[in-house]
């Protein structure tokens, strides 16, 4: 039996171009839908697959606004058993406050999860910290960037892709594992599962951001100057081949 907690983050579903709010403090999401990072979708899938193999239960958790219940319901539709919303007023929480809130809630609930899954990094902030900080706050071992996970006799065997091969880690449960897309193929929730998830209760609790030394403050966001310039067209169709060869040989010097 494994009791698994999968932690996710609601992020705007950005399209081809990111537009900022007038005060440059946030992405203008008024015309955007919301989603979760692909890594986190894989975290939920990994949780429900491990539970299918070993028995147990999956809880999906997020720190976010009221609307983040939408992403939790996606998790429920993917057959997670429970969902928890640590509800904020919508302002973005940094990785330290987020990690503190998650660790404090896990402790307060007295729920001894065997496995806590996170995405390796969030799609938007990409701070690479929440999983590690939660692990440290709870005194648990942590492996990150995992693309293959097997649980055998209370030990997590986790693999991380590096240049030329994979590193294999073996850690005793309970443990924190942050996963990367590619670890599995997240299931597509059926319409029926989605309908059922919509009726399921999503309890919300107040998160505790904690207090700590030092400060990291957002000043403003900026869309980097687009290096957009028209490419030099070498030709059309197969007739362009000699020109391509010339570029590869003389300009890039890879021939």
């Amino acid at each position: 039996m494994v009791d698994v907690l999968a932690c996710i983050k609601r992020v705007p579903d950005t399209g081809a171009k990111i537009v900022l709010t007038e005060d440059a403090q946030d992405i203008d999401a008024s015309n955007l839908g919301f989603t979760m990072s692909p890594h986190e979708e894989c975290a939920i899938e990994e949780a429900v697959q491990q539970v299918e193999t070993h028995g147990g239960s999956t809880t999906v958790l997020t720190v976010g606004p009221d609307e983040a219940a939408e992403q939790l319901r996606t998790g429920l539709a993917m057959t997670a058993d429970e969902a928890v919303l640590l509800e904020t007023d919508g302002a973005e929480w940094g990785p330290r406050a987020t990690a503190h809130a998650i660790a404090a809630d896990v402790e307060a609930q007295g729920r001894p999860y065997d496995l806590l899954l996170f995405g390796n990094e969030s799609a938007d902030g990409a701070n690479y910290q929440v999983g590690v900080r939660v692990a440290r706050a709870l005194g648990l071992p942590c492996v990150t960037g995992i693309k293959d996970l097997t649980i055998e006799d209370g030990v997590a065997v986790a693999k991380r892709e590096v240049t030329g091969g994979v590193e294999v880690y073996e850690v005793d449960l309970p443990a924190v594992v942050t996963v990367k897309e590619g670890i599995n193929s997240p299931r597509y929730a059926s319409m029926r599962a989605r309908m059922q998830a919509r009726k399921q209760e999503v309890p919300s609790r107040e998160p505790d951001p904690g207090e700590r030394p030092g400060a990291f403050e957002l000043v403003r966001l900026e869309t980097p100057a687009e290096g957009d310039s028209a490419a030099v067209v070498l030709g059309e169709g197969p007739a362009a081949a000699p020109e391509v060869v010339r570029v590869l040989r003389d300009e890039v010097e890879v021939l």
Binding site: A16, E226, G227, D228, S229, A230, A231, V232, V233, L234, G235, E236, G237, P238, A239, A240, A241, P242, V244, V245, V247, L248, L255
Partner: peptide
């Protein structure tokens, strides 16, 4: 395509025709 604004060079055409033609041209030492 958006990629055309990010690339240094472009070939407008079907990759299924262009790539084999480039392979052929390299093999022939063109």
């Amino acid at each position: 395509a958006a990629i055309m604004g990010k690339a240094d060079w472009a070939v407008v055409g079907d990759l299924h025709e262009v790539v084999p033609a480039v392979v052929e041209a390299i093999r022939n030492g063109d």
